[in-house]
Amino acid sequence: MLGLEDFIEEAIGKLKSDIPRKAIIACSGGVDSMVAAALASKAVGDRLLAVYVDTGLMRKGETAEVEAMLVDTGINYKIAEAGKEFFDALEGVTDPEQKRKIIGERFIRVFEKEAKAFGADCLVQGTIAPDWIESGDGVRDTIKSHHNVGGLPKDLGMKVVEPLRDLYKDEVRDVARALGVKASERQPFPGPALAVRCLGEVNPENVEVVREACHIVEDEIQKAASAGKMELPWQYFAVLLPTRSVGVQGDRRAYGKTIAVRAVTSVDGMTATYAKIPLDVLDAVATRITNTMKSQVNRVVYDITNKPPSTIEWE
């Protein structure tokens, strides 16, 4: 990143003046929020509390993984359990924008509660340029409402502080490496988490299917990359489609759901090409998903569109 050291110094200085008292940082464990947390912690030390929300929508083993990273940083942190609230709020909702707005609002309600308990009047967020660009504004179309932008209520009783607003993912990773942030190489993961990878209704059953499928996609692709069969894509995951189709499993008719595998190459997330994954790797992914998911999933497809015209996530 151009001017990396200057950026870090200026960001810490600005955070010091932006946070006169206490702040919480909305921390998903991704590279953006972990970098924002590291900067804010350097600026205000113990006057910062990192809040991770367990939405019930995170990936397999993710909460434990993020907690270990937070312990390692030495920053005050709190894991807020909110799975039931999120699932209740999402019941019967299928529209992608509605999902994102509901999730954004749920997040804020948790942060308000935690800020009050900690006595904080600032909310630090790891918002980066694509988040506010794609969320739309007076002149820009809304492509998708990012939870940290589109979900903010007008009456929020906290000052929002966003030190990474002008950065893209590649630049955030550079800052992460310079600061020794462990999340520096984690693949991007959307704030609304698996809710936007469950097309149709988000319920615990569907989330469990896409969670396992995402785990398989990540595991098989990481194995293939370690074996030198391919480069690790920028982002790679599974999407559960609400479409059912006919199959045959063990001489019996199957009528199950479909998993779409999505993997892209990108630098900044603003344009992307689908990853040219070797066919034998795709084959291993498809076989493992259908064998593991049995009657739930009997078809796996690979998404071969670029951004534009598609986006990286399906919702």
Binding site: A129, I133, E134, V139, R140, I143, D166, Y168, D268, M270
Partner: peptide
Amino acid sequence: VDNGGQWTHREWR
């Protein structure tokens, strides 16, 4: 000049 593009900010970058 921002005419509301998705990539206006990239031009700046």
